[in-house]
């Protein structure tokens, strides 16, 4: 399957609705996979490319909202567009609060459906992008030595090299060397960027609070 072509997963227990929606979505150039139940869907392998889920709210034998919950805790959280033949406000609110991208009533016009799908795919692209960036950063952070991690944690709290040296019980020159290595390994162009990276990979607060008492005296 092409990495960049979006895939739409359609889950609806009515066979002719499933088929018709798939045909429509395919006819405008997107890939579709259909499932008759949430269980079937959860058992499938979701591709890496951008994707979203079009889900009937009341699947026979199980609730669409229950599936939404199950998906929230799974690794690959697909954005959801709900479709329903029922249309009560409370359920709609519940679904949207739980993070659904949209909530559409059946029979659904192609405009509304395709618009919602576009939005959902965009959300997924963004999420996947962020996930990849975070993974890349984590990989780089793994390359840091324990000492370099300590230095990085203190650099991003805004301490000067001298203060960091005092906190770690070493000299400023050594700190400068460590700092340079950190910037290089993390591929950060500036301290500001390093701070953002530290946030993303979770280096920072824990360390800093541990070492704080050590430099406060200085």
């Amino acid at each position: 399957m092409d990495e960049t072509t979006p895939t739409v997963f359609v889950v609806d227990d009515d066979a002719s609705v499933r088929c018709a929606l798939a045909r429509l979505i395919r006819s405008i150039g997107m890939q579709v996979e259909t499932f008759a139940s949430g269980r079937e869907f959860l058992g499938c392998q979701v591709p890496d490319g951008p994707a979203c889920l079009v889900l009937d709210l009341r699947l026979s034998g199980e609730n669409g909202l229950v599936l939404q919950d199950a998906l929230r805790t799974s690794e690959r959280r697909l954005p959801i567009v709900f479709l329903t033949g029922h249309g009560t406000v409370p359920i709609c609110v519940q679904a949207l609060k739980a993070g659904a991208v949209d909530f559409l009533l059946k029979p659904v016009d192609e405009q509304d459906l395709l618009e919602a799908i576009s939005r959902a795919i965009a959300v997924d692209r963004c999420t996947q992008d962020n996930r990849r960036k975070r993974a890349a950063l984590a990989w780089r952070a793994k390359m840091l030595t324990p000492r370099e991690r300590e230095v990085m944690a203190l650099v991003v709290t805004g301490l000067l090299n001298k203060q960091i040296a005092d906190a770690l019980g070493t000299c400023e020159k050594t700190i400068k060397v460590h700092r340079a290595h950190v910037m290089q390994k993390m591929q950060a162009m500036s301290v500001a960027e390093l701070v953002r990276m530290a946030d993303a990979v979770g280096i920072g607060d824990a360390y800093a609070s541990q070492l704080q008492p050590l430099y406060a005296a200085g």
Partner: peptide, 9 residues
């Protein structure tokens, strides 16, 4: 729903 989507498709 099926009729509408099939027709638009």
């Amino acid at each position: 729903t099926a009729i509408l989507s099939n027709a638009q498709a």
